[in-house]
């Protein structure tokens, strides 16, 4: 059992090292008129930022409003204003990573602005432009660990995800005390379950990353 776990850890470290070669390529995008964050958002997601009339209902209902550095309505405000400096501030904010996509904002928005989709877009843009807020690193690491796990296995295995995440964040102690009891309750499968056609999964990831290269 223990040997098994150690092997697993080593395997993960190895994979992690390999991964450095294919880290997401960061790039800087110049802000030109017509190529503003707002116009790219409107084009790719279809959310029209000017629909927001700043009533603040989104922020009022947001479960994490207190923890956000830029409140949900202010995120839209900054997109609307298109003033110099706003884009950087937005892309390096913590808020865009704190959004849980619970959709409380959208469900009550009088103007039906799909804010969670705006947040998704800003997250992706923040990664692309290498502007991720340092405080959001754990969240990003988790998302990355998650996607890597399913790219390799087709489905999630919580042990793998956890180990992968721990390697990324070097936060080894967290939740260690939970592992034994989870294991004995049969909730942890140390042997990663995989889908039959794992290759298909890798291909999907590959095609999408190629297509995005083509879009640029």
């Amino acid at each position: 059992m223990i040997i098994c776990s150690i092997q697993l850890i080593f395997f993960c470290i190895k994979r992690q090292l390999n991964r450095f070669n294919i880290e997401i390529v960061h790039e800087s995008i110049e802000t030109k008129p017509g190529n503003s964050l707002k116009s790219r958002l409107e084009e790719s997601v279809g959310v029209i930022v000017s629909h927001c009339y700043q009533c603040g209902k989104c922020t009022a209902g947001c479960p994490l409003n207190e923890d956000m550095d830029i409140k949900p309505n202010q995120v839209l405000r900054m997109l609307q204003a298109e003033l110099p400096g706003y884009e950087d501030k937005l892309l390096s904010s913590l808020s865009i990573w704190l959004c849980l996509a619970c959709d409380t904002c959208y469900s009550r928005c009088p103007q039906e602005v799909k804010l969670s989709q705006v947040m998704d877009f800003l997250r992706q843009e923040s990664v692309r432009q290498n502007k991720v807020n340092p405080k959001a690193k754990d969240i990003l690491s988790f998302h990355k660990a998650f996607l890597e796990t399913i790219e390799k296995n087709g489905k999630l295995n919580e042990v793998w995800l956890t180990l992968n995440y721990k390697l990324k964040t070097l936060n080894m102690i967290q939740d260690v005390q939970k592992a034994p009891s989870m294991f004995f309750k049969g909730k942890l499968n140390p042997i990663p379950s995989r889908i039959q056609h794992v290759k298909e999964m890798e291909k999907i990831f590959q095609r999408i990353s190629e297509n995005e290269g083509g879009d640029k």
């Binding site: 209902k57 009022a60 309505n73 009550r108």
Partner: peptide, 22 residues
Amino acid sequence: IRGRVSRIYEKDGKLIVKGVDT
């Protein structure tokens, strides 16, 4: 207070009004 209210719920005979000051 300039802002809309997202939700109201009842608790212990009070109405909890969740708003925002924009």
